[in-house]
Design a protein around this nucleic acid. Structure first.
Lengths: 239, 239
DNA sequence: CGCCTCATTGACCTAGTTCAATTTGGGTGG
DNA sequence: CCACCCAAATTGAACTAGGTCAATGAGGCG
């Protein structure tokens, strides 16, 4: 059930069998959601963190004019609100974009884990810092990358992230979001997203249709996007 | 020397005298930088974290076309690269924008602190998560807030952050950055920044001149910016 | 005094938005 | 199985926020 989390961590930090058992032991209770459900609410005290094991969700905030800004897409293996442990109250919501299943880890168990195993504390801390690193790369996208570059960058990022958890087939992966949601993430209107998707398709780089991303030329797509996967911290760390 | 850090933490987490002493004890060595110096480099292994005690620095990345995206401004009291402890290698650089002084905290000491005092581990983790929260709010700015709203939002954020460390006078504060740097942070050209600053001045909301931000009407500025300081986590947490 | 960086302003241009209409495809009830 | 429905995708045309290019002004410092 939570093996995708291990895949995600394992890509980055060495991770012993005892440490895995420690987590497996505490993570038993699950919950299910349908599209539009709020998995973790903004502004309310939170007492457990949620590991996404199936489905796609997003971090988002709503602005005064009713617009929604999506700040990150969550995929299976992501600890969507681990940061609610130190923060207690979230500054944003986690919303299900498809049917989702999560596994809960109560905050009191995190406290116990940290006290008994400081190394695991560092691994959990690390996991939240990768999210921050992704935020920073998105800031570069929204601030400095224009047009199709920005769209291409997202497709590259999601490809690498899905591949870690075994959800790609060759250079194809399922990405069940609408064009409107892509727009809410990338800061474009859905109309403009549609036009850029056509451009990328016409250039033979990538096709997004029926929620399926088919990358025809990964090298060229990465080059267009100026994509460097370093910020995803996929290489194994030393300690 | 490091009392501004305590002010920053104290605003958010209760913080005992022993915990402060523990940090004071480990944080002795300082270093100085001039504008343009790199305080923490991208892509290299880092063995200590830097607490900024004087000056202004920024997190930034350079894009292929030589542009720079600033992702955050650091002010005295900020632990500019605390996240290099779990990450080991940074995805971006920390660059001095003015003369800066930092105090070092070696990573091996952080490991010792975490093992001896798990509560302090949570406080340090928390500090890095506030940076992530600021990243998310900036994503909203870059993705959803247009024109003067975006500029106004930054001036509101910096006002609240400077006030915590006692660097405001009424609603005025020193913010030694150029209009070009504001542009690199907000995703505008310096020319457009200049025009928006004139608009904000003409509206009687805020004046930015000689590196000095004078907020004439804080309520109106916050309303224009749709600013809500919640994401800065300035209120004291419970535990 | 002269140099150099930064701020300021004007004129023109383009990427992306807005508004509006049409199409497509999957789901559902009769 | 078909008719209908609804959300999402697609396209066109006109509009605008913000960028680009170019020139001028103003403060700080050797």
């Amino acid at each position: 059930m939570i093996e995708k989390l291990f895949a995600t961590i394992q890509e980055r930090y060495a991770f012993s069998e005892e440490e895995r058992d420690l987590l497996r032991d505490k993570m038993q209770e699950t919950a299910d959601f349908v599209p539009g459900d709020i998995i973790a609410p903004e502004g309310e005290e939170i007492h457990y963190s949620s590991l996404l094991v199936a489905g796609i969700s997003c971090r988002s905030k709503c602005t005064a004019d009713g617009m929604r800004q999506i700040m990150q897409f969550n995929i299976p293996g992501d600890f969507v609100d681990l940061h609610s442990y130190p923060l207690e109250i979230l500054d944003h919501s986690i919303t299900a974009l498809t049917k989702c299943r999560i596994v809960k880890l109560p905050h009191r168990d995190i406290t116990a884990i940290i006290e008994s195993n400081p190394r695991l504390a560092r691994i959990l801390w690390f996991a939240t810092m990768v999210d921050a690193s992704i935020h920073r790369e998105w800031l570069v996208c929204l601030g400095s990358r224009a047009g199709t570059k920005r769209v291409a960058h997202l497709f590259c990022e999601m490809f690498y992230r899905f591949r870690v958890v075994g959800l790609t087939e060759d250079t194809t992966y399922n990405f069940p979001v609408s064009q409107a949601e892509l727009g809410q993430a990338l800061g474009f209107t859905s109309i403009h997203i549609n036009r850029m998707l056509r451009d990328l398709r016409d250039q033979g780089l990538v096709t997004f249709r029926n929620k399926l991303v088919e990358i025809h030329d990964l090298d060229a797509l990465e080059q267009l996007a100026e994509f460097d996967p370093g910020y995803l911290y996929l290489g194994r760390r030393s300690s």
